[in-house]
Amino acid sequence: MGNASSMLTQYDIEEVQEHCSYLFSQQEIVSLYERFCQLDRSAKGFVAEDEFLSIPEYSTNPLSQRLLRMVDGLNFKEFVSFLSTFSARASLQQKIEFIFKVYDIDGKGKVSFKDLVEVLRDLTGSSMSEKQREVLI
């Protein structure tokens, strides 16, 4: 599984399924592997920041920079684990923990006023002043 151009074995598929708490079927994992290989253009065995930004929906997301710190350099198993949060089969708790990580910018285990201002800045761009953001929060 280290080389992105190699094929997945049944053992690899089962290992990835276990790692992501069986939120994806074997066929879904094979499909995700094909997509992972497309993204890993240099066949390094992980997807780099610029490769993630090649996904149009990802690059236009106002929170893409927040997500990038979570996904840069993921190998296939980590890639599937990251995507498992978006699965319809993921629990509410998994989704809440993921959203919390997006908002906990400094990684200190709490969402501070400063973290919220940063996220709001990403979402509003230049359409709001710093003062307006602070008042809103």
Rank of each mutant, 00 (worst) to 15 (best):
E49I: 00
V80F: 06
V30L: 09
D122L: 10
G2E: 10
L8Q: 00
L23V: 08
L123F: 08
L120D: 07
S126F: 15
I99Q: 14
P56R: 08
S59R: 10
D50H: 07
R133Q: 09
T124G: 09
Q17W: 00
F79M: 08
Y58A: 08
K131V: 10
M70L: 07
S126C: 13
S84N: 00
Q132M: 10
L116N: 01
I99W: 04
F24H: 07
S126I: 13
G125F: 05
Y11M: 12
G73Q: 10
M70P: 11
E18K: 12
C20Y: 03
F46N: 12
G2Y: 01
A48H: 04
V135W: 01
E18S: 09
F46L: 12
D72Q: 07
L23R: 07
N75M: 09
S84G: 00
L53P: 04
F98T: 00
R41H: 13
V102N: 02
L136P: 00
Y58L: 03
T60C: 15
E18M: 00
E49Y: 01
I55L: 10
F79I: 02
F79A: 03
S59D: 05
I99N: 03
V119W: 12
P62W: 05
K101Y: 06
F76P: 00
L23N: 05
S84C: 01
I137H: 02
G107R: 07
R133Y: 08
V111P: 15
A43P: 03
F82R: 05
S81H: 10
E34K: 14
E15G: 02
R121E: 14
G109E: 00
F86T: 05
E14T: 06
Q132S: 07
L23A: 10
Q38N: 12
Y33K: 02
D104N: 13
L63F: 00
V135G: 10
M1G: 05
A88W: 08
E14K: 00
L68E: 02
L8C: 05
K101A: 01
E15K: 05
F98E: 10
P62A: 11
C37Q: 14
R89W: 05
T85K: 06
F113M: 13
A43L: 12
S21H: 14
N61T: 08
V117P: 06
G125L: 05
F86W: 08
E118V: 14
T60E: 06
L23Q: 04
S126Y: 13
I99P: 09
Y22C: 07
M7F: 04
